[in-house]
């Protein structure tokens, strides 16, 4: 009966899927003349903490917490979701290392919802108790801390931790034992590698730099991506046309924001079959990604409206919804 351990969780997710934002609601938000009206629409849909005068970031943070709370309540094993919390955990490490090395104490730089909270991470880095960190983190944390302390090179520190985060995502995907999670992890790493290649190509970074930033994955070849990036963005597009990211090549040729949107839409599309699963972790992952996707889209619309961006500029960044 082990294949029925997700039955309760999936049924609960099915009930919650009815409150996910549809493309129609996103269209309504886009049609709102002011940011206040768009936020009012969201509040009517149950977004935020229910208090009036809520700020955009507070509302979005509240929704992120709600999504994670649902998964924590329902999932029989949170270990399989390490793949999603890894980037947050490594972000917390990066923020703590920088805060300690520069002696600055900036508020609200940490993510909640991962195994080591921001406060705990600060204590670990301040006291250099890196061995208290989970998995392979102690080694990279120590190395990044020493590097930043001795060289003062923030970018190098970022690259080291970001690559370690990608490797951790890949490892978490493999260890989950779930095909859908492994595929998600590999897609995440592949897309990150493509983005690194594009940025490095634009800024003229060396092959060594790219190699130190990219993580190995099944979706794309790091060697070929580096070679293409050294020859220019057109070569990256040409290389991608021969991979499963061919659609991304066309989006990349259009604009960086079109590529970002294509990446998110591809992920949403690949998750849609999970709407018909009943006994696997897939619907939980799909729900969490759908929530993250709609929060990202809402953030784009609200900040776009707040800064009086043209409707077309906002519309081209709007993601496809899961339901």
């Amino acid at each position: 009966m082990s294949n029925t351990k997700y039955t309760y969780a999936v049924a609960r997710i099915r009930a919650l899927e009815t409150s996910l934002l549809t493309d129609g609601v996103i269209g309504q938000m886009l049609g709102c003349p002011t940011v206040e009206q768009a936020m009012q629409l969201l509040m009517e849909k149950g977004w935020g903490s229910g208090t009036s005068e809520e700020k955009i970031e507070d509302m979005l943070a509240c929704e992120e917490q709600k999504a994670w709370r649902v998964i924590q309540d329902t999932a029989p094993d949170m270990k399989v979701f390490d793949v999603l919390s890894c980037p947050r955990l490594y972000h917390n490490l990066k923020a703590a290392v920088k805060a300690v090395c520069t002696g600055s104490h900036v508020k609200d730089i940490f993510y909640d919802g991962c195994s080591v909270s921001g406060e705990e991470m600060m204590r670990i880095v301040e006291n250099k108790e890196f061995d208290r960190l989970p998995g392979r983190m102690p080694g990279i944390a120590r190395e990044a801390f020493e590097t930043l302390l001795h060289t003062g090179d923030g970018q190098l520190c970022d690259v080291m931790i970001d690559r370690a985060a990608l490797e951790a995502v890949q490892e978490a995907g493999r260890q989950s034992g779930e095909t859908i999670i492994r595929e998600y992890a590999d897609t995440t790493v592949s897309i990150a590698d493509i983005k690194i290649a594009v940025r490095c190509s634009r800024t003229g970074k060396s092959a060594e730099f790219m190699r130190s930033a990219m993580a190995e994955c099944e979706g794309v070849s790091v060697d070929q991506l580096i070679r293409a990036a050294l020859s220019g963005e057109d070569e990256i597009i040409k290389y991608l046309e021969g991979t499963s990211y061919a659609g991304g090549a066309a989006a990349l040729a259009e604009s960086p924001s079109a590529f970002e949107r294509w990446c998110d839409d591809r992920m949403t599309e690949s998750m849609k079959p999970q709407k018909y699963e009943t006994f696997s972790v897939g619907p939980l992952l799909a729900y969490l990604l759908a929530r993250e996707n709609e929060i990202k889209t809402v953030r784009i619309i609200l900040t776009g409206k707040q800064n009086s961006f043209p409707d077309d500029a906002i519309r081209e960044r709007v993601r496809e919804m899961y339901v």
Binding site: V10, A11, R12, A15, T74
Partner: peptide, 18 residues
């Protein structure tokens, strides 16, 4: 017993939310 148990888990999941 097994069948009703499986369906019961799903039913509980739905009733939790609605």
């Amino acid at each position: 017993a097994i069948g009703v148990g499986i369906a019961g888990q799903a039913a509980a999941g739905v009733v939790t939310e609605d």
